[in-house]
Amino acid sequence: MTVQDESATATTHGATLTDAAAAKAKALLEQEGRDDLSLRIAVQPGGCAGLRYNLFFDDRALDGDLTADFGGVTLTVDRMSAPYIQGASIDFVDTIEKQGFTIDNPNATGSCACGDSFN
């Protein structure tokens, strides 16, 4: 019989940053001369579909935050948002049609026509 030490099992938020998103976030942090910030994703009420993502750089550490490192960028999620973004992938696209961070979330059952919010 083996006993697993729970402290050795890290709990993360389950979201991932693609290499492109991590590289862009790292470049933005370097451009600002900041290495003390993490990239935070939060899910908040809002939009016509009910929920909205908020993606920003943050210097705060909140009680219950879940973190994971991707290519030198710390992705942080608060404990209330974690269930909504479990399995989500954050990417950065740079094409003629679109430039910016995108979020592919398998938990989103639908979104509004403008794509600003989800449910």
Rank of each mutant, 00 (worst) to 15 (best):
114 C>R: 15
2 T>F: 11
63 D>T: 04
63 D>L: 03
5 D>Q: 15
65 D>S: 03
108 A>S: 12
17 L>D: 00
39 L>Y: 00
67 T>E: 09
60 R>C: 06
16 T>F: 00
28 L>Y: 10
89 S>A: 14
88 A>S: 10
43 V>P: 02
33 G>K: 03
116 D>P: 13
56 F>R: 13
67 T>R: 06
102 T>H: 06
75 L>K: 02
82 A>G: 07
33 G>T: 04
17 L>E: 00
92 F>Y: 15
113 A>N: 15
71 G>Q: 07
3 V>N: 11
100 G>H: 06
40 R>S: 07
57 F>M: 05
80 M>G: 08
112 C>Y: 00
75 L>G: 02
51 L>C: 02
72 G>T: 05
39 L>E: 03
36 D>W: 02
89 S>H: 09
11 T>F: 05
68 A>D: 09
96 I>P: 15
41 I>H: 02
116 D>Q: 13
90 I>R: 14
80 M>D: 14
73 V>L: 06
115 G>C: 09
62 L>S: 03
38 S>W: 10
61 A>Y: 11
84 Y>R: 09
45 P>G: 02
56 F>E: 04
90 I>H: 10
55 L>P: 00
96 I>K: 15
90 I>S: 08
9 T>N: 14
41 I>N: 00
82 A>K: 05
119 N>Y: 01
81 S>M: 05
39 L>S: 01
28 L>H: 08
6 E>Q: 05
15 A>K: 06
90 I>W: 08
62 L>T: 01
8 A>P: 13
104 D>W: 00
117 S>V: 03
60 R>L: 10
57 F>K: 09
75 L>A: 00
62 L>E: 12
100 G>R: 06
104 D>T: 11
31 Q>C: 00
7 S>Q: 11
86 Q>V: 07
45 P>A: 03
57 F>V: 03
1 M>N: 10
117 S>D: 08
44 Q>C: 05
107 N>M: 07
42 A>Y: 05
35 D>Q: 02
69 D>I: 09
43 V>Q: 03
54 N>F: 08
97 E>L: 15
9 T>W: 08
14 G>S: 12
63 D>V: 04
81 S>R: 01
13 H>M: 06
23 A>C: 10
97 E>W: 14
65 D>H: 00
40 R>N: 06
85 I>P: 07
110 G>C: 12
108 A>I: 11
100 G>Q: 09
6 E>T: 06
87 G>A: 03
49 A>W: 01
102 T>N: 09
111 S>N: 15
118 F>P: 12
39 L>A: 01
18 T>P: 09
84 Y>F: 12
13 H>T: 08
19 D>I: 11
44 Q>I: 11
30 E>N: 07
70 F>N: 07
101 F>I: 11
29 L>S: 05
119 N>D: 10
22 A>K: 14
103 I>W: 06
42 A>F: 03
10 A>I: 12
83 P>A: 09
